Amino acid sequence: MTRSDVTRRFSLLRLIKWGGLVVVGGIYACLFGEVFLRLLDPQVRMPRYVTGTEYGIRGNIPNSVYRQSTPEVQVEVRINGQGMRNNQEFALEKPPGTCRIALLGDSYFMGYEAHYEDTIVGLLESRLAAMGYRVEVPNFAVSGFSTEEMLREFEERTVTFDPDVVIVQFGRGDFADNMRPGLYRLDEDGVPQPTGGSYLPGVDIRDTLMKSAFYRMLISDSHFYSAIREWAGKTVQNMLTSVGNMRRQVAAFRGKSDAAQSASSTEQKVQTVTPYMRQTRYTSDLLMLSRVRAEEEGMEWFMFEIPAKFYGRAYGSFAKDLDLDAATSARVISPMSLFDEYPEDADPWLYREQGHSHFTEAGNGLATQALIDGMFRTSPQVFEGCRSS
């Protein structure tokens, strides 16, 4: 054996040694982190069983069952074969004498951190039935959905179920969320038009990982993984939002007319358009288009606001920042007045305080009451055709 052979073998052994130390150290760090968090800082475990759809956006994994665990509640989430959090499957054709209410939203309409009977969907079903109406409430909500994705979901799938009423969820997070997907762009008249693109961030990787029982156990039970995932998710979201803001700013600049480009600074009114102004304007355009699309199909359309939770037990409305036309504004429903009447020291409060700030049973109850009151106030005959005999 030559000296070079001895040197290579020594280098290989040293590489194996250090590689083994790195692997053992990594395993030790993960185990230590898991034990530390379980004992001193328990994490919220909120797995999301999401996959891709044939029309280019995210959807719930059909027939999936998973747990959500927080210091406040243990919830089992069941998704039906159509990718909806419903306790039934829906035929495309409505049963005679039945009204359908389609929900389009994110984790609030999905009912995260709530048992099914306490979600907005479950409460709409039970309360309207108690009022003497035959209704079905297919739930097209997907955690993390933007208004762009809700609009694509409506145009590609919701409309095929022939709902009588469409309720689109709005919340503060939609302003930034709508900067990421790139599913629509504004035409010369300022109307969002489909780009033909898709938005499936990380879906291929997630689909591969979800085939592993170990990974499914990890996302449901590991405190250490949950902490890492939340940090990574927020970081990537912020990056995608920044990219989306820049993309739309460039598109807006390129869309200016040649005359506007060449106008002198003394003749042209100078306006500073902030990213937030761009986000609110675009979200408003999407909501107004959503209403138009629904009414073209002969459906009643409503927007429901999810009040934003701040620190402590404070919350507020961001619907006032929207720039909606009169026809759309007339169909905005908000639970703010009911929330304001709710005692601040009540237990449970309206939002989960040790989880991901979704509605408690009380919050979902008031939200459902606001929805029912708002629908009947705006369209008194909305469910007249589905009264129980």
Score class of each variant (00 low, 15 high):
residue 80 N to Y: 03
residue 334 S to D: 04
residue 308 A to S: 15
residue 99 C to A: 05
residue 239 M to Q: 13
residue 160 T to A: 06
residue 226 S to W: 03
residue 75 V to S: 13
residue 202 G to T: 12
residue 40 L to S: 06
residue 185 R to W: 00
residue 236 V to G: 01
residue 223 H to A: 08
residue 286 L to Q: 06
residue 188 E to L: 12
residue 128 L to C: 02
residue 218 L to I: 06
residue 192 P to T: 06
residue 84 M to P: 13
residue 347 D to S: 15
residue 378 T to I: 15
residue 293 R to C: 00
residue 306 I to A: 13
residue 134 R to I: 03
residue 205 I to S: 14
residue 87 N to K: 11
residue 279 Q to E: 08
residue 268 Q to C: 01
residue 93 E to L: 08
residue 295 E to C: 08
residue 89 E to T: 14
residue 285 D to H: 02
residue 160 T to E: 04
residue 60 N to Y: 02
residue 232 A to F: 10
residue 65 V to L: 11
residue 226 S to V: 01
residue 17 K to Q: 12
residue 95 P to N: 09
residue 245 N to W: 07
residue 214 F to N: 07
residue 205 I to E: 15
residue 216 R to I: 09
residue 78 R to F: 04
residue 389 S to R: 08
residue 292 V to K: 09
residue 174 D to Q: 14
residue 112 Y to K: 10
residue 112 Y to A: 12
residue 377 R to E: 12
residue 166 V to K: 00
residue 132 G to F: 01
residue 256 K to T: 09
residue 127 R to T: 07
residue 33 G to S: 13
residue 48 R to D: 09
residue 73 V to T: 14
residue 124 L to K: 05
residue 87 N to M: 13
residue 130 A to N: 13
residue 305 E to S: 10
residue 187 D to G: 03
residue 174 D to H: 15
residue 5 D to L: 00
residue 243 V to N: 05
residue 133 Y to P: 01
residue 46 M to Q: 09
residue 196 G to P: 01
residue 378 T to S: 13
residue 88 Q to V: 08
residue 244 G to F: 06
residue 63 N to A: 03
residue 101 I to A: 00
residue 171 G to I: 09
residue 160 T to M: 01
residue 86 N to T: 03
residue 37 L to R: 11
residue 140 F to E: 02
residue 130 A to E: 13
residue 171 G to H: 14
residue 228 I to C: 11
residue 218 L to G: 04
residue 215 Y to L: 01
residue 74 Q to A: 11
residue 371 L to K: 00
residue 325 D to H: 06
residue 386 C to R: 06
residue 4 S to K: 11
residue 3 R to W: 09
residue 371 L to W: 03
residue 83 G to S: 13
residue 162 D to Q: 10
residue 61 I to Q: 11
residue 13 L to M: 11
residue 131 M to D: 12
residue 217 M to E: 01
residue 22 V to C: 15
residue 382 V to K: 13
residue 322 L to C: 02
residue 370 A to H: 03
residue 365 G to I: 02
residue 334 S to T: 12
residue 11 S to Q: 12
residue 168 V to N: 00
residue 331 R to F: 09
residue 239 M to T: 05
residue 26 G to H: 03
residue 293 R to F: 02
residue 164 D to S: 05
residue 255 G to A: 12
residue 322 L to W: 06
residue 339 F to D: 04
residue 13 L to D: 04
residue 352 R to G: 15
residue 80 N to S: 05
residue 199 Y to W: 12
residue 226 S to D: 05
residue 11 S to G: 03
residue 194 P to M: 10
residue 319 A to N: 02
residue 64 S to A: 15
residue 76 E to Y: 00
residue 240 L to M: 11
residue 44 V to H: 08
residue 211 K to V: 09
